[in-house]
Amino acid sequence: MKFKLKIENEEFEIEILETPEGVKVKVGQKEFFFGEKEKIEEKTVAKVKIPKRNFEKREILAPITGEITKILVKEGDLVKRGQTLILLSAMKMENEILAEKEGKVKKIFVKEGEKVEKNQTLIILE
């Protein structure tokens, strides 16, 4: 199939040829080939393994270095969105850490009175 295409006052002569190996597109003197090779590459990309990640598991991290004043849940508890999980006293201020989503308390890594560092995992919800 041959046709002419005008782009911004410049005219291009385009020819599309189907061959057993694939499709050849001629634009003026330049040739572009779309064949099996491209298909194989496409499959290769699609087969690249993405590491599995559990998006349901949620870590509650310490927002600031401080001391755990109170733990208001225990392992196995079902918590609602917005429920207070932990009180952390830091820089002479009280910090109330709430559950961002509902879930089950899978693991508690800290104890009341324990000093924690910023970004330390406190609780895992699932």
Binding site: P63, G82, K92, M93, E94, N95, E96, I97, L98, E100
Partner: peptide, 22 residues
């Protein structure tokens, strides 16, 4: 410091700042 004020050895005022992290 940080949060209490005393007058004549007795507490007259208390201040508390709380952050809620959601």
């Amino acid at each position: 410091l940080p949060n209490d004020i005393f007058v004549n050895g007795k507490k007259i005022c208390g201040i508390l700042t709380e952050n809620v992290i959601f």
